[in-house]
Write a protein that binds this DNA or RNA. Sequence first.
DNA 1: CGGACTGTATTAAACTACTAATACACTTGG
DNA 2: CCAAGTGTATTAGTAGTTTAATACAGTCCG
Lengths: 128, 128
Amino acid sequence: MEDRGPVYLQIIHYIKQGIAAGIIGGNEEMPSRRALSALLGVNPNTIQKAYHILEEEGIIVSRSGAKSYTCVDSRTVERIRRELLSGETHFWVKAMKQLKVSREEAFALAAVIWEEASREISDCEFRH
Amino acid sequence: MEDRGPVYLQIIHYIKQGIAAGIIGGNEEMPSRRALSALLGVNPNTIQKAYHILEEEGIIVSRSGAKSYTCVDSRTVERIRRELLSGETHFWVKAMKQLKVSREEAFALAAVIWEEASREISDCEFRH
DNA sequence: CGGACTGTATTAAACTACTAATACACTTGG
DNA sequence: CCAAGTGTATTAGTAGTTTAATACAGTCCG
């Protein structure tokens, strides 16, 4: 529905999601700032901002001149996964309650949409 | 989790949500720009921007000098309700699928959080 | 009527997100 | 080694959001 805020936050969220889903490994080479910016069609500075925050959060490591790598053990992967999962679900429940939807109606709709989404081609990885 | 973007969009969303939930009636007096800005601690111009867009969408009517009123029939209320409900649920399902969560795990977690939220005091109306 | 409140409009300033164009030092692979 | 690619930093500019300080004309109620 919406674009969901600043691009650099979307990138951070996207990478965390990839790690939580196991698409991005815990000690894996990351695309360079320039390469990812070209791929996504945004400015290198925007990628740098996202990577910098990810480094502050201890999710990637960067050595000046060399490529950046993810830096998360399995415990951290599980922590990130639970954070995202819980966060998104809390947000949905809150929205449903604010709309004064009954538990039955909410879950029935979610079930319908879940099946609907299962019948769609859903492949949009950020590398091939 | 997040602040969810521009304030004027939050206000629009909040009012639509109130209408969809039946908290705000279909032909009801709206708080004045100045009153709502004071209540929310934001600039009157920000409220004006939100109200102006709501008027363009045919949700409220404003006559220069008089108070603004909501202007939605029951069919429109139902349309708005379905839009918000469907939009939020699509977003949640998409997030769950991107995290590669099984339907069972996702719905189980949602059930837990739903009950958890039911045990909390949840009253934050925008007027008393 | 007349004052209080209303919607509406204008202008200026500050702030953030994002783009753009560089520049520099470091690492790596051929 | 050395050229290509890398992370990092700087400066400038644009656009959108928000605040601020007004101003003015219309409506409403006592």
